[in-house]
Amino acid sequence: MSLIAAVSGVHDSGGYRRPPNLVAWLVLMPLLAWLFLFVIVPTVMLVVVSFAERDALGRIVYDFTLQNYIRAFDWLWLKVFLTSIWYALLTTLICMFVGYPVAYTIGRAPLHWRGLLLMLVMVPFWTSFLIRTYAWITILSKDGLLNSLLVSAGIFSHSAEILYTPFAIVLGLVYNFLPFMILPIYTSVEKLDNALIEAAYDLGAGPVRAFSQVIIPLTRPGIAAGAMLVFVPSIAMFAITTLMGGGTNPTIGEVIFKQFTSGRNQPFGAALGTILLLIFVLALWITRKYREED
């Protein structure tokens, strides 16, 4: 940190934020209204439903019950939660290490290249998810392209099990979430001042020190944002774990989806969803509070 202080003298924006005036409230209104109508109201509905019962057809019957929560506190669902969080964590870490150099290279590229490179990161994902995923299945399957390549190159003596393993799940998750790591990091790298990096080098830092002590700390907001944008949505993502993992290891998104559909038990699904939201909000609240006190 001392190196940054030496070369940058970052301003503290702490005393800068003002109390809002009427205009500020008016400008914030659309966001507040949106949050109220389409985030708070559905969340409240979810919580209400989680205390309700359902009829034979799966329609909600508004009789108060704690049954859904009693059922939810079971080792089984905890295990499912942990599996989901574990995959999300692994995906986030790998995306970080794989994505950072890419984001850095794009952010440091000549100005007129950056837009093009950014587009190139995103364009593969403008194809249909299923086609992309089935393409991966074709590549990774036992008689697939990768195996025939490895066998004919003599690296493997016979086809390996790649598809329908945890490795395939992580590969699929990393593939689909990588852009959501690269883009936010890019926006942090892009604003790095060249003079700052040069100053770091001038003070005698090699590339390793320049990165560990100046560049990475300065791009930390982008890394943190990328980590959020990858970790949070990947917890409940289950299409990849079922398609590329063979569906043998249930995750929380899949369990909730099945309770809503084939289980015809929306209240129980809602209770699991409410617990997921609670765990998440608590974790975020604590980390933020801790950071502020730090």
Binding site: R54, D55, A56, L76, K79, V80, T83, G247, T248, N249, P250, V255, K258, Q259, S262, G263, R264, N265, F268
Partner: peptide, 19 residues
């Protein structure tokens, strides 16, 4: 035939064996 509310339980049994 329709099995009404038992679907949720069956899902739980299968999930628990899978997990």
């Amino acid at each position: 035939r329709d099995i009404g509310t038992q679907g949720s339980k069956i899902d739980e049994i299968v999930t628990s064996v899978k997990a």
